[in-house]
């Protein structure tokens, strides 16, 4: 079976973002960009399913500016077979992304789509569930273990109280949680090989989707800053401060 993995280009998780002085967004010029960490986990899971003989082909899709090709190349170097870039300069929100992914799913016919549980820039945690709804497929969100057995799949999910196990009929949607696997680093030979793999480029219009944002960003601001407090010299002083100054115990 084919597996589709959407991979998003985001500000690297090590970067401390800064709000632009005109309050229109965060500074992204000159900032290190990487694949969303949850999407690396998604690619890794797909590659493992291929290594086990469950999957036959892995397609990595990214949506956004032309530079998203770099993100697709990373996915190809990790083991995806080919890529699709939906190129757009518009702020792509999950509803539009999910609609475009639906169009790609209808064309490519994957039996499984593995997404990240959230993108670490916009933290929406929405796209996978939305795609599942648009396709009428079942969903296994926040997955920490996935086992494919014939036409169905067992998914262990991370929920607020612990873990939950569900069985989904294929085709289905998975979103990855942190503990699903530890993504591999691409080896140099694989990075070289990835350069020869194909990336098709399409536009939102080719997929019949109007990507105009439904949520308009009015302004982006710094959150209130927390002042660093002070050091205490001993446990006794700490407890005294908590009791008599902060009065929280």
């Amino acid at each position: 079976m084919k597996i589709l993995v959407p991979v998003k280009r985001v500000v690297d998780y090590n970067v401390k973002v800064r709000v632009k002085s005109d309050n229109t967004g965060v500074e992204t010029a000159g900032v290190k960009m990487s694949m969303n960490p949850f999407d690396e986990i998604a690619i890794e899971e797909a590659v493992r399913l291929k290594e086990k003989g469950v999957a036959t082909e892995i397609i990595a899709v990214s949506m956004g500016v032309a530079a998203c090709q770099e993100t697709i190349r990373t996915a190809l170097a990790m083991g995806a077979d080919r890529g699709i870039l939906v190129e757009s300069d518009v702020d792509l929100q999950p509803l539009a992304v999910a609609k475009m992914l639906r169009a790609i799913v209808e064309k490519e016919g994957p039996k499984l789509v593995i997404l990240g549980k959230q993108a670490i820039d916009d933290d929406m945690s929405a796209t996978g569930q939305m795609l599942a709804a648009l396709l009428g497929w079942p969903q296994g969100t926040f997955a920490s273990k996935v086992t494919v057995e014939g036409d169905s799949m067992t998914v262990i999910r991370e929920v607020d109280g612990g873990l939950e196990t569900v069985v989904l009929n294929l085709p289905a949607i998975i979103t990855t949680d942190l503990r699903l696997n530890e993504p591999r680093y691409a080896s140099l030979p694989n990075i070289m090989k990835a350069r020869k793999k194909t990336i098709d480029i399409v536009k939102p219009g080719d997929l019949g989707v109007d990507p105009t944002p439904r949520l308009v960003v009015i302004k982006v601001e710094e959150p209130p800053k927390r002042q660093a407090g002070r050091k205490v010299a001993s446990v006794a002083e700490l407890v005294d401060k908590l009791r008599n100054e902060a009065k929280v115990i």
């Binding site: 929100q93 999950p94 509803l95 999910a98 933290d123 929406m124 945690s125 929405a126 796209t127 996978g128 569930q129 939305m130 795609l131 599942a132 709804a133 648009l134 969903q139 969100t141 926040f142 999910r157 991370e158 929920v159 607020d160 944002p213 439904r214 949520l215």
Partner: peptide, 20 residues
């Protein structure tokens, strides 16, 4: 976990961009 699992699914059917 429950709200995040369910609400985007609702939003997609209603053609609405969720506000998370």
């Amino acid at each position: 976990a429950n709200g995040k699992n369910v609400m985007p699914r609702v939003a997609a059917v209603l053609d609405s961009q969720p506000i998370s």
